[in-house]
Amino acid sequence: MITAERKPMEELIECLRPYHRILLVGCNECVTVCSAGGRKEVGILSSALQMAFMKEGKTLEIREITLERQCDPEYIEELVTDISQAEAVMSMACGCGVQEIAKRFKEKPVFPAVNTSFMGASEQQGVWAERCQGCGDCVLGITGGICPVARCSKQLFNGPCGGSTTGKCEINPDIDCAWQLIWDRMKALGIEENYEKNMPPKDWRTSRGGGPRTIIREDLAK
């Protein structure tokens, strides 16, 4: 999922200070799962904003809505009625959702309520960790299902650096050394010979090196 964290309240309050009627939009997808921008978080933020402004003697009218997905124009269309009554929009979705709203409703200011962080997985209740960087050329099949791009701090492709100590990364001792994990997994799978194979320099053009990316499925695209 795409993970996110709510921005500091001070920043959000400053964004909304000039407005009196806002639409607070949540998303039922990734940000719901990572408890950053689902229906419940919309309710909590709405109350927090109301109280913050009431303290200053200002009434802020907030309408709450949570869309099934904010990254699809079909769902964004559901905002038409509510958005017409609002002076500004605050989105609790990832950056994709915020941009979809901005694209569809060009005349309305849109503010992000969360900082979009990374593509990650849930390690335990309330803990999410980065797992994928969307490099566009997946090597998980060779590395035993552990990604050296997202999980090695230095994105090394041929074994660990000299900073790997007792299975931990020198950048942060709380982080597992990706190459230790890869080696352990290779051993468990009996494919240690993969470790000996020299991986050529990665072609980063499939990643962000080639600029913003687009996927076109000819059979589906109109």
Binding site: Q50, M51, M54, T59, E61, R63
Partner: peptide
Amino acid sequence: PNPAKSFTPDKASNDL
């Protein structure tokens, strides 16, 4: 008192 108390409860309930 809660500094946000002067908020009109009727309005809040409409948002729910």
